[in-house]
Amino acid sequence: MMNLWLYARNLIIGLWIVFKRTFTTPVTVQYPEERPYLPPRWRGRIVLTRDPDGEERCVACYLCAAACPVDCIALQATDNPAAQDRRYPEFFRINFSRCIYCGMCEEACPTNAIQLIPDFEQSEYARRNLVYEKEDLLISGTGKYPDYNFYRVAGVKTLDKDKGQAENECPPVDVRSLMP
């Protein structure tokens, strides 16, 4: 009998607690009118960036495609004879209907070419429109790393510099010489 009274009391208290919520303001963000704050490192849409010289950063090393857990990245490498056989992707395709925005590709990328940016508004009516080609992905800026230029720090020979002339790089050692 005592228990029954306790149950009834607790049920009524529950009702009252819920009813008090009538006078609180909702925590919902009214999205299209009211934009939520997205931190700069928020992982959203994937873009391909260019280095400060305006060349494509991507060297088509396939590391992003290998790292992708859902295999949504497809690309094919080719090289540019005009620029010292510098490699670049012939096509670069990301299927965003499969992408899980995990950011593994960004971590795998040796040249900081592939980057995830704080943008998530990618809704489409047709699913095929979610397959982004290279021209959709490539942006004209440098993304999160404005000063980074892979070919300026890497020890490969390019059109305007030879081996050993990159930043923080010593001149090449003649390995055949035994002179100290």
């Binding site: 009813f19 925590v27 919902t28």
Partner: peptide, 8 residues
């Protein structure tokens, strides 16, 4: 229900 669950 929305109001009581602190949404709209």
């Amino acid at each position: 229900l929305g109001i009581w669950q602190e949404r709209y």
